[in-house]
Design a protein around this nucleic acid. Structure first.
Length: 598
RNA sequence: GGGGGUGUAGCUCAGUUUGGUUAGAGCGUCGGCCUGUCACGCCGAAGGUCGCGAGUUCGAGUCUCGUCACUCCCGCCA
């Protein structure tokens, strides 16, 4: 008989009755009836009930074992009585009569129990992650993550993608997020950087003639955390394809995303391919966001014309000053008390907006302070544009374009929740396309890349030469699911002449570009195929499918919000000799330093 | 860097609004009882720097100020 086990804890059935078996696992739970003791034994595969009676000489030994100790149980599989069958576990028709009981590893009193679904503080959970990972929720999430990654690999491979590796120690990238730096021992004063994404390497693979690349790639960015953003590191399904246009990328990715979500969505409806495509400008208008949540049926409309030159002076004056008015519908909201509408306005003001006007349509009239100041024709115009009528209400966001969009988008989210309009039982995908290539940075007072500088501008060199730079669109796209941005992607700029021109518009000289992107440019000068790709975030995909509100719930060993590893104690100070070897000297931060740095 | 929330037993939380006797409950732990449980049940016990510091007061878990930790958001994330 094997020293540890003949079966696992989720394996035994009625057909094993009569066999003497050996199981090893954790003591999940004990139920002591005085003259009868039940021990639930748990491993990765399941739970098996073991039982012992006091006439057995080892009863006291078994009785005294602490929960979560690791033990080996040897004994006969016996059938349970009909009335003691437990249908909620796979091994519920049998139990093991304990013959031998060996303790492999005793557990001390637990800082967090493994049994039960009580919530515990995250700090405690992170410090004892190995215990938290034993618990059902995290254990399930991590196994789900593994299954999803395996499934993605299979789907990508089947579609003719080749899984290729890229370096972890590489060069700092001048655009984008803050890098994690690694000092070089061999080259005093010089540093490697961890890749923010394998962006340039995957393009180099295309140039090297590998037609379709993918990788479950680690990415490192030194940025502050959010609920859906792990600090430090995260994983992307990194994809790049040769000789493709935007539609080819969509056609390659849609079946993978749809397939994975369909398989692991637990019956929830998934948007069938092709996913809706929404132009960036339309997304900003209709959803007030570049990551529209299509589960929310509300659509924002522009009603500036209905207020322009009207006697509702607050809006008409603002419009003369360049403002727009966006309407957020609240269908069926008429029955709500006045406080419902006032609270929305209050919320907008609390968040720094001038306010949120509203109108309630009832028995052919528009009630509310705005309705009284507006002519019948204008009210009819608003009803027409918003497709609203009696019984409905509408909110108005009046501000300059960007801020009005933002407010309308936030109000749309809020109304969707308050009016209970969100269908939570589905995964709604869309593509957001036609991103502007450049935008004007108010602080820097110059045109900057609004997305990925390596993207191909729509219209190519012609557009860069002739168009107003902020009007130029890029072959850039995002894939969004339930309001969460899963990925950005683009058709890349594979032409050095177009690259120089694009960077020139963003204020880089030819010499700048040569210095910063020399490797990439050199590659493009010796025959580069047109190519493009995308990189959906693995952690966010798992988060959506696991139904978790926080990305740390689907990462086995996450850093906390301040980018610390509480289990391994990182980051940590290093010895002087270690620093010396790397040609580093620590500088105490004085007050003066702090001021000049901040 | 900024804003919000939280901080009371090992853990989850009540008590803070309106300052007033010995700060409570559940889970866990420990002890006792219990032959069919699977969130076993019953009885009992131990367990507290009310995050920390200062202040107001005859008196502070409760009020004020400061500070720290965690978390959510803004900034940031080509």
């Amino acid at each position: 008989m094997h020293i540890y086990r003949t079966h696992n804890c989720g394996e035994l059935r009625e057909n094993h009755v009569g066999e003497v078996v050996r199981l090893s696992g954790w003591v999940h739970r004990k139920r002591d009836h005085g003259n009868l003791l039940f021990v639930d034994l748990r491993d990765d595969f399941g739970l098996t009930q073991c039982v012992i009676e006091p006439k057995n000489p080892i009863f006291d030994h078994v009785d005294s074992i602490a929960p979560e100790s690791v033990v080996t149980v040897t004994g006969e599989v016996v059938l349970r009585d009909k009335e003691t069958i437990n249908p909620s576990i796979s091994t519920g028709t049998i139990e093991i009569r304990i013959g031998e009981f060996k303790v492999l590893s005793e557990a001390e009193e637990l800082p967090i129990p493994v049994f039960g679904d009580q919530e515990y503080p995250e700090e405690l959970r992170l410090r004892h992650r190995f215990l938290d990972l034993r618990r059902e929720r995290l254990h399930h999430n991590i196994k789900l993550r593994a299954a999803i990654i395996e499934d993605i690999r299979q789907r990508m491979t089947e579609q003719g993608f080749t899984e290729l590796q890229t370096p972890i120690l590489t060069a700092s990238s001048p655009e984008g997020a803050r890098d994690y730096l690694v000092p070089s021992r061999v080259h005093p004063g010089k540093f490697y950087a961890l890749p923010q994404a394998p962006q340039q390497f995957k393009q180099l693979y295309m140039v090297a003639g590998f037609d379709r690349y993918f990788q479950i790639a680690p990415c490192f960015r030194d940025e502050d955390a959010r609920a859906d953003r792990s600090p430090g590191e995260f994983y992307q399904l990194d994809v790049e394809m040769s000789f493709v246009d935007q539609e080819d990328v969509f056609n390659a990715i849609e079946p993978v995303m749809h397939g994975v979500f369909q398989k692991y969505s637990d019956g929830k409806e998934v948007t069938p391919a092709p996913f809706p495509r929404i132009a960036y400008a339309d997304a900003m208008l209709q959803f007030g966001s570049d990551k529209p949540d299509l589960r929310n049926p509300l659509r924002i409309t522009d009603v500036t014309d209905a207020f322009s030159g009207s006697s509702f002076k607050i809006f008409s004056n603002a419009i003369e000053g360049g403002a727009v008015v966006r309407a957020i519908p609240a269908p069926g909201a008429e029955q709500n008390p006045r406080s419902f509408f006032d609270k929305m306005n209050e919320w907008a003001r609390e968040n720094g907006w001038p306010g949120l006007g509203y109108m309630v349509f009832t028995s052919g009239e528009a009630k509310g302070p705005i309705g009284r100041n507006l002519s019948k024709e204008r009210i009819r115009m608003i009803q027409e544009i918003t497709s609203l009528g009696d019984g409905d209400a509408v909110f108005f966001a009046c501000d300059e374009v960007k801020r009005a969009s933002e407010l309308a988008g936030a109000a749309r989210d809020r109304l969707g929740i308050n009016l209970n309009l969100i269908d939570s039982d589905c995964f709604r995908f869309c593509w957001v396309i036609d991103y502007p290539m450049f935008e004007y940075d108010e602080e820097k007072c110059q045109v900057v890349f609004s997305h990925n500088p390596f993207s191909m501008p729509q219209g190519g060199l012609d557009a860069l030469n002739k168009m107003n730079s902020t009007d130029i669109l890029g072959f850039q796209y995002d894939i969004v699911c339930n309001g969460i941005e899963l990925s950005s992607g683009a058709i890349r700029n594979h032409r050095p002449d177009i690259m120089y021109k694009a960077f020139e518009l963003a204020g880089y000289s030819r010499a700048d570009v040569d210095m910063r992107f020399g490797g990439m440019l050199r590659a493009l000068k010796y025959g580069a195929p047109p190519h493009g790709g995308i990189a959906p975030g693995i952690d966010r995909i798992v988060m959506l499918l696991a139904g978790e509100p926080n990305i740390r719930e689907v990462v086995a060993f996450p850093l906390n919000q301040r980018a610390e590893d509480l289990l391994m104690n990182a980051p940590a100070p290093v010895s002087k000799s270690h620093l010396r070897e790397l040609h580093l000297r620590l500088v105490e931060a004085s007050d003066g330093d702090k001021e000049t740095n901040s």
